[in-house]
Design a binder for these strands. Structure first.
Length: 357
DNA sequence: AACGCGGGGGA
DNA sequence: TCCCCAGCGTT
């Protein structure tokens, strides 16, 4: 079969399947480009079921571009707490400020203008432009990589940057004219529900017929992907410093891991250092205070994609008379901790503190 | 091109 | 418990 005939068949079969099988997701009930944009950013590395409640709360609290642009960053992070990859929402807010100031609060309706916004790459730009503005542009996410690699038996490593153009060109070629919104979502929906990573449901797949990987029986071997290395183990310390009903917390720096979130002060143990010495040094250097670790309060394990924290939390005496509080260092009553955005690793500590209230 | 960046679900 | 899921920015 020639290329144009396959394009015809895949387009028709996928659109038909999608119309009959698409899930009723909240962001599919709106045409608001901003609301769709928020959903795409949340969905970047997070599954649908997780995103739904976050999206509802976020749109309720920040219903417009302007509301998001004008909000305190701490409020924005609090609504993102637990979703991970916090730079996503910091960039989203920066982008909202650009849209407010330079685009009259209207999400731009061209690929190039959208791509120029912070946090907007080829996928997000394509998804928003096609879904919200009906532009015939591709939106290639991990699902689409998987579906197309199987459908056309493409064995290039999808993790390699140069491979992206191959898939984008193919995805664009396949778009039935004027139907990018449904077609792009159909490809992703197929990847999420039928053409899944393990044990794909080829028996109920609408494009089993033209699928080259299925014909060869190699669907389980695709897509080809380089293995990533295991998380690096890191010994962490954290201090539980109490004063009456309050505990000492600080805000993490504006860049790097967990930027802008709050935590119990501490840090990475250096080689050859004891946990206690490490903790004392960290608090002296970052907060200018001297503490005496008393006893182990909790041990928390947390795995990131690239790190594994083994965090020991010590209850400490404060030897310094006074702590210089600031924008980033605060005494907070136990029952007020919930108003601050913490990484999940530190939420585990907060949870254990709950027993003390 | 290589690396940093979180967290959750399913087998 | 182990293994899997990946877009974007920075360097």
């Amino acid at each position: 079969m020639n290329k144009l005939a396959i394009r015809e068949e895949v387009g028709q079969k996928l659109l038909e399947w999608y119309e009959a099988n698409k899930r009723d997701l909240p962001w599919r009930r709106t045409r608001d480009p901003y609301a769709i944009w928020v959903s795409e950013v949340m969905l970047q590395q997070t599954r649908v079921e997780t995103v739904i409640p976050y999206w509802e709360r976020f749109l309720e609290r920040f219903p417009t571009i302007e509301a998001l642009a004008d909000a305190p960053e701490s409020d924005v992070l609090k609504l993102w707490e637990g979703l991970g990859y916090y730079s996503r929402v910091r960039n989203l807010q920066k982008a909202a400020q650009v849209v407010k100031e330079r685009h009259h609060g209207i999400v731009p309706d061209t690929l190039d203008e959208m791509r120029a916004l912070p946090g907007v790459g080829p996928y997000t730009a394509g998804a928003v432009q096609s879904i919200a503005y009906d532009l015939d542009v591709p939106a290639v996410d991990g699902n689409v990589f998987r579906v197309l690699s199987r459908l056309f038996l493409i064995e290039e490593d999808i993790m390699k940057p140069k491979t992206r153009k191959t898939f984008e060109d193919l995805a664009e070629f396949l778009i039935p004219s004027g139907r990018a919104a449904s077609f792009n979502q159909a490809l992703m929906e197929l990847g999420a529900r039928i053409c899944i990573p393990k044990n794909p449901r080829c028996g109920t797949c609408p494009v089993q017929g033209p699928c080259k990987a299925y014909a060869e029986g190699v669907q389980e071997e695709l897509p080809v992907k380089e293995k990533k290395k295991p998380p690096r183990p890191v010994d962490m310390t954290a201090a539980l410093v109490r004063s009456g009903d309050a505990v000492l917390i600080r805000r993490r720096p504006d860049t790097g891991l967990l930027a802008g979130l709050w935590e119990f002060p501490g840090g990475e143990r250096m080689e050859g250092e004891t946990l206690e010495d490490s903790l004392v040094t960290h608090l002296r250097e970052s907060l200018g205070i001297t503490v005496q670790p008393l006893h182990l309060f909790a041990q928390v394990e947390h795995t990131f994609s690239h790190l594994h924290w083994n965090m020991r939390v010590f209850e400490c005496d404060l030897l310094t008379g006074e702590v210089r509080v600031s924008e980033d260092v605060r005494w907070v009553a136990l029952h007020d901790l919930e108003t601050y955005a913490f990484p999940v690793a530190h939420q585990k500590i907060v949870k254990q503190l709950g027993g003390l209230i």
